[in-house]
Every structure is written in C-alpha cells, then in structure tokens.
Nucleic acid binder design. Structure first.
Lengths: 196, 196
DNA sequence: CCTACCGATCGGTAGG
DNA sequence: CCTACCGATCGGTAGG
C-alpha cells in the first residue's frame, strides 16, 4: 500500500539525498540504480520508498535546492549597493564556495538536469535563465559606466559562466589547491581580463 | 550469427556515429537506447549491429577520436617555435573551434566518458592528464620568463580549462555570437587577465 | 536489414 | 524495514 510520506521527516531523507547526490554525480542519474543507493545505505531498495516518493524526486530536490541557493544569492547581490565589479566578484566567489562545499549537488544540477521531467525541466531552465540575465546586467552596466572594458557582454558572460560551471571537472583542485587560494586566483584571472 | 564487422565500411558507420553523438549528447549515454538510435536512422535496432559492435563501442570511438584530435594538436603546438603566450592562445582557439564544429562529440567526451569500460576508461583519463600537463608547462614557462604574471600556475590551468570545457553549456552561444567573435573575446578575456 | 526473442536489470508496489 | 514480485525496457543474438 502506498504510504504518504511526510514533507519533513528530517534527517533520514537528508541522508538519502546526500548519498544519492554522491551516486548520481559519480555514475550519472540514469546509470545509478535505486538498488545500489539502498546498498550504500545498508537497506533494501523498497525501503527507500518509505522516505522518498521516487528516484526522480531525488533529482528534483537536488536541482531545485541548488537553484534556490543561487537565486537567493543573486537577489541579495542585486539589492546591494556595491559597484558592478564588486557584484561580479561576489558572484564568482559564491560560485566557487558552493562548488567546494556542494560539489556533488552542483555537478548534478549542471549536468544531470536534463533528466528532469516536465514541467520541472522548463521551470528549472527558466530559473537558470533569470540568473544568467542578472549576471549579464552587471556586465552591461559595468561596460556602460566604464568600469569594464568595451567588451562583448554576452561573450564575457559565457566565459565567466563556463569557467565557474566547468570548475567541477575532475575536482582534483580540491587536493592540490586550498579553496581560498583558488578563489582569489580565479577572481583575479576572470576580472582583470576585463577590468580597465 | 555474429557477423564480423569490417574496420572500414565508410559512410554508414559514420552516419551512425554522428546520430549517436547527437543522441548521447541530448539524453546522455545511459538514457539513450539503441532502439531510439535505430529509429532516427530509419531502421530496426538489430540492424545497427551489422555496422557496429556494441553501444559501448560508439562511445569509445567518439571519446578517443576527440582525444586524438586534441593530443595531435598539443604535439603540434609543443613542436612549434612560438612563445608561451602564442602557444596558450593556439590551445584556446583550437578548443573553441572544435567546440563549434564538434559540439556533440566534445560534450560526450567531456561528460559521458565515465560510462567507458575499463581499460579504456583509464587510458582515456591518462590521455587527458597528458594534455593538461602540456598546458601546465606552457603556463609555468610563461611565468618563469615573465611573459605571464606571477600567478599560481595550477589555478590558471583550472580557470582556462574550465572556461573551455564548460563552454558547451546550453550552446545558445552558437546563435547569438559569431564563432570568430567569441573566440577573439575569450582569448582576450582569458589571456589579458594573466598577461603582464 | 528484418522478425522473433533472450536474459538481465530497472523503478516501483503489495502486503505485512 | 523486509520478502516477494510486477511490468517495462534494455543491449544484444539467432537465424534468415
């Protein structure tokens, strides 16, 4: 019999979500089986369904939780009184910190979102689009008030976003570089190239 | 009865590879079925096996063909008499051009390689490691002879590689920006940030 | 290049 | 949280 799962049952669901994120990141969403997830948690696969609704629900929770963090930070930056350069720097630093702390989850929201069902898929892509529009505005404003060079704003957006989102590759950087150093170096690299 | 497939049967296998690349990129390797691939080609699934050995073989051919292109270009750049800055610029431009021309294949070799079986998986990762070591050397040499700022070479490598490999995201840039403009802008963005 | 079909594995449910 | 089990789908083969 189907059991109604509580929206908040605290720690057990979060444990499942964390294991799922690690598994989905390592193998990909489709290649990850609920049986393997259950095994890593020391239970049988059907027992998972006392805590979650479906495999897809796990993916949704991961993607939208990550998206919410970024959206919230974007709004915070937009409402600040900082300069455009400071806003861009804040965005870059936030990305890198999130990547260091929530690597599995960010990887999934970057590369496994395509497995989301509709209408969540569209909603997710729309939220991303809004975020990117916010970044583009910072760059355009910076060009207008001459704190940035007269670059192509769209290309600069793509370069910065690619550098930040592509960051998870291999994640070897975690061992070889202190996170704070990487953060400072990337800010310098990505901003000084477009800072007049 | 198993049929021995010729190593060179020319166009038909290449047509399959091209369709497979598009499908694997859109849906992911695991989520792509041979039945769907066959349908897009107007044949039944079992007929595919007159031209290919397995689904995995398709992935292998895509990943190693891409890797071979990059490895060959790296060797060409290493043997050139260019300055370190010119070498880095050549690498960046080559990446972007490959991305514009072989988007599906690069996406797969960037994100679906984890589906490779052993020992191909290890061989693939080793080839990538060699490529990255080559780039790192350009950066280190540039720092030593002061054509680059006194940056952290590892961080600079990560930033450039991330920006280049993360580039395929959404691939909207294909419509909005002429490829050559994006190339020039990214070279400027990624190099001027570290060029003294 | 097709029809017919296989063994394996999947997400998930029934029922307790 | 378990055992038992389902319908669907998968990659691939047999045989022609």
């Amino acid at each position: 019999m189907a059991k109604i799962r509580p929206a908040r049952n605290g720690s057990k669901k979060e444990v499942i979500l964390k294991s799922a994120a690690a598994l989905f990141r390592a193998k990909g969403f489709k290649a990850s089986s609920m049986r393997e997830l259950a095994t890593t948690l020391g239970i049988e696969a059907p027992s998972l369904y006392n805590h979650i609704g479906s495999k897809t629900e796990l993916l949704e929770e991961i993607c939208f939780t990550v998206a919410a963090h970024f959206t919230q930070h974007m709004q915070q930056v937009q409402q600040s009184q900082s300069t455009e350069l400071q806003k861009l720097e804040a965005i870059i630093r936030f990305h890198i910190r999130m990547m260091l702390e929530w690597f599995d989850e960010l990887y999934i929201s970057n590369y496994e979102w395509k497995n989301l069902p509709q209408p969540q898929l569209s909603a997710y892509l729309e939220e991303r689009k809004q975020y990117e529009a916010g970044m583009l505005l910072f760059i355009q404003d910076g060009i207008e008030n001459a704190s940035l060079q007269n670059i192509n704003a769209q290309a600069a957006l793509i370069t910065i976003l690619s550098a930040l989102r592509g960051l998870e590759h291999g994640n070897r950087f975690r061992q070889e570089l202190p996170g704070r150093l990487l953060e400072d170096e990337m800010v310098h690299h990505l901003l000084n190239g477009i800072t007049r």
